[in-house]
């Protein structure tokens, strides 16, 4: 607050009288201020009383109007938000997830095709029967997840099926099965067709399935799949095409190995005979 001048116009030592006058005027100002304050309070009170006028919005309706205004503002905010930019990250995320899923699917498909290729290659590369049997074992164990199985081979001369290979059990425990038998093994010989998924003729309760191994239209052997490996709960989609491939190619491999073995023996026998007769 600025202190007003005494009105003397010139500085000088102040007397008691001038000080009394100064403080007297100050008191007057204070009184005026108190009066002005009282007047303003009264005016404010009057205005407050006018606020009770029924024409003014009631608290409830005021709340409703405020809520409506809030809703209006929110609506404006939503309308003002740039739609494409906000939707873009979400769409990108979905697209990325779909691509990752697709890549994983393709990787599995690629691995499956590779396993089919490798199995087929091994069957056709096998030169002797032991290699064919090893390939059958490895493919069933490592690619399909079969823990126990028996391979029965057809002996056309004796008209029987005999066990040649067994995994997960004793080979000697498997007897010969006459082709004229009415059981599932003998029935394979009559069908003489490669296995395909869903063929009811090959369903059997005593085993997971009987898988015919054919060479062209002739049954060469039968695989009895007896149980899965512990960690394998059941067939997956890819296993069926692998089994179908085994059904078509393992029989050819067995027959080829047999032909190779006999083709090799024939010249040796002829050579022995020629030596005997001195030719």
């Amino acid at each position: 607050m600025r202190v007003q001048d005494s009105g003397q116009g010139e500085p000088g030592p102040r007397s008691d009288a001038s000080l009394q006058e100064f403080f007297g005027r100050g008191e007057t100002y204070v009184r005026q201020l108190i009066a002005e304050n009282a007047r303003l309070r009264l005016e404010l009170h009057t205005n407050d009383r006018r606020g009770d006028d029924p024409q003014e919005p009631a608290p409830a309706s005021l709340m409703e109007s405020l809520m409506a205004r809030v809703a209006e503002l929110e609506h404006e905010r939503e309308a003002a938000r740039p739609e494409p930019e906000s939707a873009a990250p979400s769409a990108t995320d979905e697209h990325t997830a779909a691509l990752i899923h697709r890549i994983e699917h393709l990787e599995l498909e690629s691995y499956h095709l590779a396993s089919m290729y490798v199995a087929g290659l091994q069957f056709h590369a096998a030169r002797v029967l032991t290699e064919v049997l090893q390939t059958i074992t490895e493919v069933l164990l490592n690619f399909v997840g079969i823990g126990a199985f028996t391979l029965f081979v057809v002996d056309e001369e004796r008209k029987v099926l005999f066990a040649l290979l067994r995994e997960g059990g004793e080979l000697e425990a498997c007897g010969e099965v006459p082709i004229q038998d009415a059981g599932p093994l003998a029935a394979m010989v009559q069908r003489a067709r490669p296995w395909t998924r869903g063929d009811p003729a090959y369903a059997d309760d005593a085993a997971i399935m009987y898988l015919p191994l054919v060479s062209n239209r002739r049954l060469v052997a039968v695989l009895r799949l007896e149980s899965f490996l512990a960690q394998k709960p059941g067939f997956e989609d890819n296993d069926y095409s692998l089994l179908s491939m085994i059904s078509e190619h393992a029989g050819i491999a067995i027959e080829t190995a047999w032909i190779r073995a006999h083709a090799k023996a024939a010249p040796l026998q002829r050579q022995a005979v020629e030596q005997l007769v001195g030719a």
């Binding site: 691995y111 590779a114 396993s115 490798v118 199995a119 091994q122 090893q134 390939t135 490895e138 493919v139 490592n142 690619f143």
Partner: peptide, 10 residues
């Protein structure tokens, strides 16, 4: 086992 080996390599 050649098939297993090939699959691991793959």
């Amino acid at each position: 086992s050649p098939p297993m080996r090939k699959m691991i390599v793959f």
